[in-house]
Write a protein that binds this DNA or RNA. Structure first.
Length: 1317
RNA sequence: AGUCCUGUAGCUCAGUUGGUUAGAGCGCUACACUGAUAAUGUAGAGGUCCGCAGUUCAAAUCUGCGCAGGACUACCA
């Protein structure tokens, strides 16, 4: 039996209230008088404190006690986000876990029951990749080199590998968490709960099968996750053929306006870097609010006159041809006509034939019309050999031409370029939304697949609006291929434009993962929205080749990289060319010759590559199961408004925007280690799929299947659905491949197979509020997750899931959570999945408050990574500093949501400043409390400074409480720290030291002891959430029992004396000023002075406050008297400053002038203002009456005295040293030396001594010693008779003789010895 | 590319509804203290409050445009 158990737990809880009178201590030591000494320590060893306390916690089961103690209290619900245990914890986990722990401990101290169940996230790609690396295999090997069963067994083993390391870290940082009974996402019970949720979604028609455009590697034959795409090196710069394609507009009422001044046909221009997707073009997207314009021009390849539509601010770029990066300039009308129509053959200087000569800006140039372009060159250029590649450019019909002449001089280029921009500006424009609905001809109408599509989808091939369209590059018109682009598909879906597909002819063509359609099912009309798939194929098969219906391009790989060198050579031969031309290039050529290309260029950009095959990926449609979150978008947004986000901006910004742009949740993952989709389908899709929501249901279905003969035996025969024991559940495995073997039977008697996909692991963790309790299967879970009845003011009753702070005592409710916390990177991860599942399945938020903490960076602000070698080992850090200092540092340094630049120096500082101050203060208390056998009994007489520190303590308690309640731990930590370091240690203890060591045990001394004890005790309670170990040590030493079992201290408003706190703040300011003067005047603090003078306005608040702390100031600065002088009387130099806030509000624009005038006021005018309270000022704008309250007047100087001032505070010190003052100074100096000698001699603080001082012939010295002999003896605990202090001869034996220098001039010799009595 | 966060002394951070000498700690320099003493106090040096523009009598603070660092999401014609 531990000592702890002897005392009933209840007794350990005690609160405090009322601190304004001596009576406040009435209940302070209501416990049995302390029978032990307060332990004293030689040095502060935080790691040791942590280790000791941890051992005590283990022995006592303090965590268990803290829960047991509140078993009937109202719950505070916390969810632990599951970490993945297949990696080692880093220092950022210390941060994350400390934050969680802080609020759980705080709420526990506040009297709530805080269940804290640990959890492990065990599925997911990182785990698979880790195992594959370890086994030296790839995904392709699964099912070949290694069975799925063995593979999953390896994952299961790997995933919990480091749990003990995590548990160790969790313990060592003091995070109280139930590690004994964690939830584990691979447990059968957990999976059953997840299946329950999925079934619920399925029944509510929120689960459907569809497809999305996903990264796909034809070379590897697999889809890639964004994680795989984000691996380094996947994005590589490549040069692709880009095409500005021309889409011919159909002339109809919608497009009429485009033809108004048209030259030839009208084309909409759209740019693409993937020409191979052009055959599947189904629509064009424009920005509804972007400006577009028609330009009459010529086709650069066919020379046909034509009109093109381009976004206005893409005109210059689009009309500029390759190689003409310089200016584009207009040319006179006659030039173009001359060139095109009146050709006159001219021989150039090189003998080459030109089409004409023009004069441009005084330069004679030769013109050549070639391929529809107008080329211009000067004789010099031709002779220099550069003339063969002149120039350009496109004739802008007949009024203007753009001409590029790079060699004509930079200044002209600029001017001319501007002229071209002016031309563009002047073009009449229209908005994108006017283009919407305009129809156009298919770009490649002769390809069979396009023909078929066009026949079946007459509503395609039109212009639609898309928000994603920009004018950053291209033409401001986006070629939309819903078959191959994610944005494209989304916008096409919105406009009811289907992608280009055809039904798969064979299983070979449509692999299982590429079967889909978006047809309504016709056999289950009541299940509206349910989508059943059918095998179909886009225009590219899964090897990356065009399908046969692609006419001349049939069977070709769409990317040159998919062919080997030999294949390319063979292909070139087949094409009858010297060199292999890619599909992209040949489509470009085809478009050029058909007059459907405006520009063809090589374009360099970053493109993602498959990390495994190094080949470019395709964005390709893959089928998936989706959660239809968009159906509940408004509910998601509404529920989010009920959540308190720390910081708020994450909730409204990052998370809010995410919800606004919600996409359906793609749940499918084609993997092995994860929770299988519990959906079974018949092979021919003729019947409705079955979604299984429980093991009981599965067993029943299996039984039917076995009976029907589609399955031989029940693989889960060992499982009894009525038995909720772990043993029963863990006897079976719901992972692949076991579930894959289950074949169910449809109502029509057909065999049904499971969808092979797994579900997104994010669903696992988002399901944790329910699955951790095995909801709804266990009785406990149904108690924890249920609606609470409410009655409103009108007597109406309703129920809802709620975690109001008013949850009744003993309530088991565990949903929603009051509080969760994870890294900000979980915003769209865990925070979202929790929110989505709660909203969709339970129509509730999942948590009331979420703290999203920032990153832990290294001290340079770089992200920590193993690669950079800047990762901090949490264990080494804990070893070196102890958990308390690490936690305190992390919390006090920056708000949790700001990134933390982790610097061990900072921890050292926290150790030194906060913990050592607290430790020293405690040790100081313990030292004297033990000497006096302080027991908390007896009368107390509170002094002003006791009342002050208690007032401060209550203020800090109030602030800390409010801050913790508002999830602002940093504010709390800083407030506590400032209180300890500044108020308690540096001010209260320093000022009151004497009271602790003076003899006897009066009411005053008792008050000091009790006050200090109380402050330390409350500090230990306030700081316990952040520094659980040290605070517990402190509390145990002060009062016994664990601080974590105490009740949070309530502040007493009546004990807070704001006036006193302000007064003391003044005292500190004044003191600092006086010490400054002493320093300036080189007068030691030990030398008493006679007079301190402070100018005030008599009777004003400042004066009154100073009166309150008069004694404090005097003792602190060692001055005999404090005098106040009326500063309104003349004789002082005054400084005047306008009160800008007051005057600004009243004067507005005149402010500046008045401020100037005020600054120039002379002393007599200031005096007049002070005496009459009013002054008439003449400024620019007229006259202004200046009132006394409009200005701040401060005294700057007091004649004849040594003065210091700081802002409005001014003090004057009388530094005259009279004889008695000097004597007292000497006596004090002597006392100080003797104290040092006592200490150096190794005497205990309580030792009495025998002291003698030898006469040294210095009259002043000897007089000082005689006059203050009693003082000297008392201060040094000397028992020497008064008349034997000053002696001619020192005792010969038994004592040590010391020579002492008092200052530069005087010295003496004295002897001291430990007294035997 | 979008969304969000951050930017104040060499470092880590405060800075209230905009109000005129922008603060603290650490570090540095000097001095002091010595019955908490590997502690403590005082003073000094150290600022383009990331930049530019705007609103205003008045901007570190509000607005806009940028820059830098970071996070997430997306990946594009």
């Amino acid at each position: 039996m531990s000592k702890y158990q002897k005392r009933p737990v209840r007794d350990a809880i005690h609160g405090f209230s009322g601190f304004c009178t001596p009576a406040i201590f009435a209940d302070l030591f209501a416990k049995p008088a302390m029978d032990k000494r307060f332990p004293q320590y030689d040095e502060l060893d935080l790691p040791k404190v942590a280790a000791d306390i941890l051992a005590i916690w283990d022995a006592e089961d303090t965590f268990g006690k803290s829960l047991e103690l509140r078993k009937d209290a109202s719950p505070f619900v916390f969810y632990e986000g599951p970490p993945s245990a297949n990696g080692l914890p880093g220092i950022h986990h210390v941060m994350a876990r400390a934050i969680k722990d802080i609020f759980c401990r705080y709420q526990t101290q506040k009297g709530h029951r805080v269940d804290r169940k640990a959890g492990w996230d065990t599925h997911g790609l990182p785990i698979e990749l880790g195992v594959e690396k370890e086994l030296g295999i790839t995904k392709e090997d699964i099912g070949k080199k290694i069975s799925i069963e063995d593979y999953n067994a390896a994952c299961k083993k790997a995933v919990m590998r480091y749990t003990h390391v995590w548990n160790d870290m969790t313990r060592r940082i003091g995070f109280w968490l139930d590690l004994e009974k964690p939830y584990v996402t691979y447990h059968t019970k957990y999976i059953e709960s997840v299946w329950f949720l999925l079934k619920k979604l399925y029944d509510d028609q929120l689960l459907y099968k569809g497809y999305t455009i996903q990264p796909y590697s034809p070379a590897a034959g697999t889809g890639l996750s964004s994680h795989e795409l984000n691996q380094p090196g996947t994005y590589k710069p490549v040069k692709d053929t880009s095409v500005v394609a021309m889409f011919k507009v159909n002339k109809d009422p919608a497009s009429e306006f485009l033809f108004k001044d048209a030259l030839g046909d009208v084309f909409i221009l759209a740019w693409t870097t993937t020409p191979w997707t052009l055959p599947s073009n189904c629509a064009l997207a424009v920005g509804p609010s972007l400006e577009y314009a028609c330009v009459r021009t010529f086709n650069p390849y066919t020379h046909e006159p034509q009109t093109v539509v381009v976004a206005k601010n893409r005109l210059v770029e689009t009309l500029r041809l390759k190689g003409s990066e310089g200016a584009v300039q207009p040319l006179e009308k006659w030039v173009i006509e001359e060139c095109l129509h009146g050709r006159s053959n001219v021989l150039g200087p090189s003998g080459r034939q030109f089409d004409g000569i023009v004069e441009m800006n005084g330069v004679e140039a030769f013109v050549e019309v070639e391929l529809g372009r107008i080329a211009v060159s000067t004789p010099e250029r031709i002779l220099s050999g550069a003339g063969d590649k002149p120039v350009i450019l496109v004739g802008l019909r007949t009024e203007l031409a753009a001409l590029h002449v790079p060699w004509l001089g930079s200044s002209m280029q600029r001017i001319q370029a501007m002229a071209f921009e002016d031309f563009v500006d002047a073009l009449p424009s229209f908005y994108g939304h006017q283009l919407e609905g305009v129809r156009y001809e298919p770009l490649l109408p002769n390809l069979p697949i396009v023909k078929t599509y066009a026949e079946n989808n007459p509503d395609s091939f039109r212009v639609i609006g898309g928000d994603f369209v920009t004018t950053e590059d291209g033409t401001g018109v986006v070629h939309v291929s819903p078959t191959f682009g994610a944005d494209d598909k989304r916008v096409a879906d919105q406009h009811g434009i289907p992608g280009m597909y055809r039904t798969a002819m064979s299983a070979e063509e449509g692999s299982p993962s590429l079967k889909f359609t978006i047809e309504q099912n016709d056999f289950a009309p009541e299940r509206e929205g349910l989508v059943i798939e059918k095998a179909i194929l886009p225009i590219v098969d899964r090897q990356g080749r065009y399908i046969p219906e692609m006419g001349e391009f049939a069977g070709e790989y769409v990317k040159a990289e998919y062919l080997s060198a030999e294949q390319q050579a063979a292909e070139a031969k087949r094409q009858g060319r010297d060199k292999y031309l890619s599909v992209d290039e040949r489509i470009a050529i085809k478009l050029k010759t058909e007059g459907r290309a405006f520009k063809v260029e090589k374009y360099e950009h970053n493109y993602p590559h498959c990390w495994r095959t190094d080949k470019p990926i395709l964005y390709y449609p893959l089928d998936s199961w989706f959660v239809k979150v968009t159906a509940k978008k408004q509910e998601l947004i509404d529920n989010n408004k009920k959540i308190k986000w720390k910081p708020e901006s994450t909730g409204t910004g990052r998370f809010g925007n995410w919800l606004e742009n919600l996409q359906d949740w793609n749940l499918s993952r084609s993997r092995y280690w994860g929770i299988p989709l519990p959906i079974w389908r018949s092979e021919d899709d003729s019947e409705e799929p079955k979604c299984i929501g429980s093991l009981r249901e599965l067993k029943e279905e299996i039984a039917r299947a076995v009976k029907a003969g589609v399955m031989k035996t029940d693989p889960y025969s060992a499982f009894n659905p009525d038995d909720l024991s772990d043993a029963n559940y863990e006897g079976i495995d719901l992972h692949r491949p076991f579930v894959d073997d289950i074949v169910l039977v449809s109502p029509g008697g057909k065999p049904m197979k499971r969808e092979t996909d797994l579900i997104d692991v994010w669903f696992d963790s988002g399901a944790m509020p329910y699955a951790q309790w095995h909801y709804p299967f266990s009785a406990e879970s149904r108690e924890r997750i249920k609606k609470t009845p409410f009655t409103d003011g009108t007597g109406r009753k309703w129920e809802q899931y709620a975690s109001p702070s008013s949850l009744s005592g003993g309530s088991k409710i565990s949903f929603p959570a009051h509080f969760i916390a994870e890294g900000v990177d979980q915003t769209r991860g865990w925070f979202y999945t929790l929110h989505a599942i709660a909203t969709l399945v339970f129509d509730s938020r999942a948590y009331d408050t979420v703290v999203s903490n920032g990153l832990v960076l290294d001290k340079m602000g770089q992200k920590m990574s193993k690669r950079l070698g800047n990762a901090v080992d949490p264990f080494k850090t804990l070893d070196a500093f102890g958990a308390d200092a690490v936690r305190w540092y992390m919390i006090s340094n920056a708000s949790p949501w700001d990134n933390l630049k982790f610097d061990a120096e900072g921890i050292t500082e926290v150790q030194r400043k906060f913990f050592r101050a607290l430790f020293n203060t405690y040790n100081f208390f313990a030292l004297y409390a033990n000497i006096d056998a302080f027991d908390g009994q007896g009368d107390v007489a509170l002094t002003e400074s006791d009342r002050w520190i208690l007032s401060r303590l209550n203020s800090v308690t109030k602030l800390a409480d409010a801050s913790f309640a508002d999830y602002e731990p940093t504010v709390a930590a800083r407030a506590i720290q400032d209180f300890v370091v500044e108020d308690l240690s540096n001010w209260y203890v320093r000022l009151n030291r004497r009271r602790f060591w003076k003899g006897g045990m009066g009411a005053d001394k008792n008050a000091a002891f009790r006050t200090l004890h109380h402050c330390l005790e409350v500090v230990s309670m306030l700081s316990a959430p952040i520094s659980p170990f040290f605070s517990d040590r402190l509390y145990r030493d002060l009062s016994g029992g664990s601080v974590h079992l105490t009740k949070w201290p309530t502040h007493d408003e009546a004990a807070i004396d704001v006036e006193l706190e302000r007064s003391t703040a003044y005292a500190q300011r004044i003191t600092s000023l006086v010490l400054g003067i002493r320093k300036k005047e080189k007068i030691k603090v030990r030398q008493p002075l006679q007079r301190l003078i402070i100018p005030v306005r008599l009777g004003e608040l400042y004066h009154q406050r100073l009166l309150m702390v008069r004694e404090l100031i005097l003792s602190e600065v060692n001055v005999k008297s404090l005098e106040f002088v009326d500063e309104t009387k003349s004789g002082f130099t005054k400084r005047i400053k306008p009160d800008f806030k007051k005057l600004g509000a009243r004067l507005g624009k005149q402010m500046k002038a008045v401020a100037n005038a005020v600054g120039q006021l002379e002393q007599p005018e200031i005096a007049m203002l002070e005496s009459s309270g009013k002054l008439n000022l003449r400024v620019d704008g007229g006259e202004v009456d200046l009132l006394l309250e409009d200005v701040e007047i401060t005294t700057e100087n007091v004649p004849g005295l040594s003065v210091a001032s700081d802002g409005p505070y001014t003090v004057a010190l009388d530094i005259t040293l009279s004889g008695p003052l000097l004597q007292e100074g000497i006596a004090r100096e002597l006392v100080s030396r003797i104290q040092t000698l006592r200490k150096e001699s190794g005497f205990a603080v309580t030792d009495r001594i025998d002291l003698h001082i030898q006469r040294n012939g210095d009259v002043a010295f000897e007089q000082a010693v005689s006059a203050h002999a009693a003082h000297i003896l008392a201060e040094t605990l000397s028992i020497t008779p008064l008349d034997q202090l000053l002696v001619t001869d020192l005792p010969q034996t038994g004592s040590t003789v010391h020579g002492v220098a008092l200052d530069e001039r005087s010295a003496c010799v004295l002897s001291l010895s430990r007294s035997s009595n």
